[in-house]
Amino acid sequence: MPHQKIIQTSSIDAQSSTRSTSNTGTHYDDLLYQRSLIYKKNEISLSAMTFLFQEMINYLHQSSSTMSEFELKLSRYGQSIGLRLLELLNFRASLPASLTSIPTRSSILFSSSAPLTDQANSNSTNTPDAIRKREEESSTNADLAKHITKMRRRDLKILDILQFIHGTLWSYLFHHVSDDLVKSSERNNEYMIVDNEPQLTQFIPQSSKFLNSCHFFVCGMIQGFLLNGGFPCSVSPHLMPVDGFDERVIYLIKFDEQVLERESLRF
């Protein structure tokens, strides 16, 4: 079963990138804003994701002259996702339980009423009829903010935002919370997030000298998330196999001294 785990991305992430190739201008923009930010259980296959990941690595590897350049570039891919997830996941966390408790049902519901609009291959249906349907959908579902009575608090402390990463971000990306969140006992600006079975890299042979570098994608996501949340830091992966978990990786987060300084001044 663990090998059947699937990577999920938001339906918007997946769709907009494909859609944009055929749609341009305001029409495309309209569609973007009609789409709901609500959580939908749209899963894409792990093999597809792995294929994309492999192509990313391949491309970056060819365009980089050094390993550190490769790592940096891969990390930046991750960052651009991380900074988006920061906004998206916090926003979703603000939604009242009545909306969040039905994600699975609602997605079924909507996919039955407008089966094509939620699919990545629906870009051929631009008939007035389909557009009207989408607008109907948007009127009921697209604007979620009005249902929010209280926005989730912005995380102000290191521990708060790390817990959000450990819990919410990890669950969103990998369907489970991270395996551990540890504070370094030696340096007070270092924290570690542990993943026993990293999914994205599971098909990369353990003998590959790239394996560690490939973890920089996830590092980037963490970094982008923290950086834009106001916690500048650097994140690096460290392979730390233990019994039973040969691919166990530790993401080491080093916060800028400034972050600690601010915390000591503010709180």
Partner: peptide, 14 residues
């Protein structure tokens, strides 16, 4: 809040 939602949608565009 609603503008925030619109902003997130904007940002979701890669």
């Amino acid at each position: 809040q609603e503008v925030h939602e619109l902003y997130i949608k904007t940002l979701m565009n890669p």
